[in-house]
Design a binder for these strands. Structure first.
Lengths: 268, 268
DNA sequence: CAGTGGTCTAGACCACTGG
DNA sequence: CAGTGGTCTAGACCACTGC
């Protein structure tokens, strides 16, 4: 039964009934629960674009039928995807593909807050695109983006100001191929988080990121753009952002002025 | 049946069967799933010290019997407590109260890593207690610790060095009452994370923390302790650490030298 | 081998949303 | 009202640990 199922185990004999011959031979157990397999299949639907950002995915009962498993198993797969912020559950409405657009929780990856802790107190950020050009990847950028040194990249430089005070200077490197057609105009005209534009215009959804933070002093050019003195220490925030499958899709280096702001982090 | 149960709903009629009269009157629904109530009860056992760090809690079946609910409901409560790092599950062995002692994952709250990313490359940190004295809480410290300004606090200053290079200067404020008896000797002699000592000696377990990070320049005294120049920018890391119940139990201000290290953060 | 946590099922009912 | 996610149960079997 369920001969067409792409899954390892049979629905009539749950959970890899009787360790498979393969597993018995391999030194690595390679045991994978059913819900992990369903999760992997759902990830493919997200990655392939079958399920688009902000749209609803099939109901739990639908998916249970499609995958020939019980609702509870689908539930557990969705639970994990929701915990990773790939899906959003809304009781009574359905389960939706997460997005960087819409919602209050814009700027999900920006951890800089004004001293009073209330982002709304200073209104929306003013964004100025300083530069947007094609260039070639340095060895460092290439390594971070998992491409070859010298490959084409798009390079963006911008300044974010809060309450008219220049506060963030960012240099951004993007692989040229997925982001073909990105221009300064498009960045300037778009009203919303940059990652939302990446989703809608280029089908690239940033899923997670890692940041390395240091304290630095700005050089002359950076001082000019941020209108600071060369003796004012700044936060250097190096970010690598990843799409599905842990594929790096952006390198970003931010310089944060922390005289009236701080970088907030929660330790659990 | 189950007349002795401390829970809201009856095991024969699951999940608040028929919205309670109280809830119908109150404007706030005040609906709480069974597993949340079990979770709260388990939190009490942790908080009261009935279940001690690193020891095993009763098995899921035991708890299910004790609370007169099914194993699945207990499971969901434990799942959440494990996700919050309060419990640790070990298949085949049991569920254990998490601790800052033992295990590789020491220094869970320290996010500073050497440039090569491998904490083991530079060996264990050398710790030097510079000072440990009784004093009175400033208004800032008092607010953070939820005590009154002028209340007694313990103040600790220490320097951490990696590969003999002074790298972290920390000022720590602790409420005097729970930490009565803490001395410089005890801190110096103890071999392990400070939070592990807090657990074993004072029964205070740090559960989570929040950090505010800025870039600063050191003053003369800080320069002397870290052996740096006054023009070397440093990371200022202000931490408030909380025990159970979101009760703040420590304020800490760290100065991190980031010439050969970086503060790592994962964005999800 | 017994005991633990981990997975899976089938079915029931509840809470929430929208037409 | 139908449809969705959310909770709860009862029971079965699997994977892992240690005696």
């Amino acid at each position: 039964m369920s001969a067409m199922s792409a899954l390892t185990s049979d629905s009539a004999t749950p959970a890899n009934a009787g360790t498979s011959p393969v597993a018995a031979v391999l030194s690595a157990p390679a045991f994978s629960p059913l819900y992990q397999q369903i999760k992997a299949l759902m990830l493919q639907s997200l990655q392939s674009g079958e399920w688009k950002p902000s749209s609803a995915i099939p109901s739990e009962m639908d998916l249970a039928g499609r995958f020939k498993v019980s609702q509870g198993t689908v539930r557990k797969a969705i639970d994990e995807l929701a915990a990773e912020n790939l899906l959003v559950r809304r009781q009574g409405k359905g389960t939706f593909v997460a997005t960087h657009a819409e919602h209050q929780v814009q700027y999900r990856f920006l951890k800089l807050f004004p001293d009073d802790g209330d982002p709304s107190s200073e209104g929306p950020a003013q964004r100025r695109i300083v530069d947007c050009k094609r260039s070639r990847a340095s060895t460092e950028v290439a390594r971070a983006l998992a491409i070859r040194a010298g490959d084409a990249v798009l390079q963006v430089r911008r300044v974010l100001s809060f309450a008219t005070v220049p506060t963030i200077l960012e240099d951004i490197w993007l692989p040229a191929t997925p982001f073909k057609g990105l221009t300064a105009e498009r960045l300037t005209d778009y009203d919303g988080p940059m990652y939302a534009l990446f989703e809608t215009e280029f089908g690239v959804r940033m899923v997670r990121a890692e940041e390395k933070i240091r304290a630095v002093l700005p050089d002359a050019q950076q001082c000019a753009l941020l209108k600071t003195k060369p003796t004012t220490p700044l936060l250097s925030v190096e970010r690598i952002a990843y799409t599905y499958n842990d594929a790096p899709m952006e390198v970003r280096r931010g310089l944060y002025l922390t005289e009236r702001h701080y970088y907030r982090n929660a330790l659990n």
